[in-house]
Design a protein around this nucleic acid. Structure first.
Lengths: 349, 349
DNA sequence: TTGTATGCGTTATCAT
DNA sequence: ATGATAACGCATACAA
């Protein structure tokens, strides 16, 4: 009663040809000549029998699955209410469609990077897309070592020129700082993320460059790190308040690398008597709906996440197919969305 | 220079055991006793060699991939700005994680349902999740015929009791109509989707039931179908306006099965001199952000899409593992989100 | 407790 | 133009 699946042998027998011929016909191989008559017969029989080539067997022998694996930073990240990853996913989906690949979403929670590595190397997919990991990520390093087709999205691992697609963080931060400088701000604070994020370092670099290019002293922008992201919101706000009240000449503008913290600040600072943007201007990164819906709506550095996702799949499938990618790293220009969280710097007291 | 992948034979040789033993150890089989010493040795060698079992080979021989395939109604639906499918995807992701399955997203555009069918049957996944298809869908029928583990999300195919997870459409529509009746509406129009949608029929049934249960005449609610969804918005609005001006006693409430059309109506009717909700009340289905952000915000029937997605994966993996699912169809109760698009019925002229 | 042999369903090589 | 045969890498029945 066990329904064995139809195999190419069944088709071959029914069509009165060898199994090889069936394979040849179904692969539409033009280098081997098959008589039109046999070809049609095989095709007909295959259709009548509802025959479908076994994907695992094909993958085993060809070494290709026509799948790209996507590894989110944590299971579920792709469907977070935060549209960041979802937008990247949209681009990846679009690109996968164009390249003729399917998407395998890794929805597992492995105890160690090694387990994840083993899973990736098992060959369920021809290439892998890593998203938003630390630049010293072990998994990335191992995959590189193994020369497994890999493309990093939204981060640049510590290997110069290793395959990565991201926005142009330097230019993005530049845009933000230039905007603030134009508004007259001369005491800007860059709120840094965890130091292992490549984009955090790149943005800091861009921010400094903008100041330098404007011929202003380096102290115009200062670096602040409030510790790991898990810290409770209240504490973060307290520190921000302290920062904005420090010294004789306190900062007048805050540049955030994300939206959550920026939103938190924009909405909580007024409760501490600090008005946005009257007393302090705030700029965030990403410019998703979140910035748009903050009160007040945040001026934010937008990045083309869709295009980034699309480019990443194309790069990884190209790698998987053996065409060495022309260039290892791709950077997409950002755009500054000016909203209501930035205004002219207040007069010094 | 061709880097052949490490195989279990390599591990076996290095560890001085047979390939069988390697397989036994790595599968952690407890029914076969392996000396603790060999076990450790095999494990160590495997780790040193960075060995990883080939997924395709395993799938070929075991017949299981531990993957669930997701087939959206069109490529990209899962990442539409409309959060409907995205929310289902969130639930599916969550469920897949819990079941230990990965998600294979079918991002292809096949010319015919047959091609899609062939692809599904190729065994890239152990089961398939179909979303939002027509109730007479050919693909669904073929999959059922082939007894391929399949679960339908957000639709019920024309086979009674075939595996399907959806909200309780009858109850949902009931909720909406009861609300309108309480507000004094006695001329309600149900705007129907294409007739091949099971949920359209179920909601119509629920709407009628609510009227009947209230002891009101059947004419209290009337059925309207404006034709295929591709019709240009302007025409749809025109017809709606005509409807709302028809006869001596025109309708005072509109019940939509989706959000796009409801939003369109809510925002366009005022331009035609019909105020919402003063002149006409509008209720939509789904209650995603879209309803929330419409001007005025729409009263809407919410459905637990996350739970639906989660339940669907669990059902399909259960089927794939041979446990006949306890019950073929699951319905989740809806909730009515009352917002500003509904108000007391206007006094008859 | 461990090893030998076989088959899963394909594609690819080499005959014919 | 087509067919036999050998991999691919693994799991498993059976043998030892």
């Amino acid at each position: 009663m066990k329904r064995r699946r139809i195999s190419s042998h069944d088709v071959a027998r029914e069509a009165g040809v060898s199994q090889t011929t069936v394979s040849l016909v179904l692969n539409g191989r033009t280098d081997v000549r098959i008589s039109e008559e046999t070809r049609q017969r095989v095709l007909d029989v295959a259709r009548n029998l509802n025959y479908s080539r076994n994907a695992s067997a094909r993958a085993l022998v060809t070494g290709r699955t026509h799948r790209v694996e996507l590894i989110p930073i944590h299971p579920g990240a792709l469907v977070d209410p935060d549209k960041y990853y979802a937008t990247v996913l949209a681009g990846v989906t679009e690109g996968a469609l164009q390249c003729g690949y399917n998407l395998l979403i890794q929805s597992a929670l492995y105890p160690t990077w090694r387990d994840m590595y083993t899973d990736v190397m098992s060959g369920s997919a021809d290439g892998v897309l890593l998203i938003g990991r630390a630049s010293n990520d072990k998994l990335t390093a191992a995959l590189r070592e193994a020369r497994f087709p890999t493309v990093c999205i939204s981060f640049q691992p510590d290997f110069p020129d290793y395959y990565s697609v991201d926005c142009d963080n330097v230019q993005g931060a530049r845009l933000a700082v230039e905007h603030l400088l134009e508004l007259g701000h001369r005491r800007i604070v860059y709120i840094a993320p965890e130091p292992e994020h490549s984009w955090g370092r790149e943005r800091w670099q861009g921010a400094q460059a903008a100041v330098a290019d404007a011929g202003l002293p380096p102290e115009t922008i200062q670096y602040a790190y409030f510790g790991a992201g898990i810290m409770v919101p209240d504490v973060r706000i307290e520190r921000t308040v302290a920062l904005l009240r420090s010294g004789p000449n306190p900062p007048t503008a805050l540049l955030y690398c994300g939206e959550a913290d920026a939103q938190l600040a924009a909405e909580a600072l007024p409760e501490h008597g600090i008005r946005v943007p009257t007393d302090v201007s705030i700029v965030s990164f990403n410019s998703t709906e979140m910035s748009e819906r903050t009160r007040p709506p945040l001026t934010s550095v937008w990045q083309p996440l869709h295009a980034i996702g699309e480019a990443a799949v194309k790069m990884v499938t190209s790698l998987a197919e053996g065409h060495e990618a022309p260039s290892g790293t791709m950077r997409f220009p950002c755009r500054l969305d000016i909203r209501e969280s930035t205004a002219r710097a207040p007069m010094p007291a």
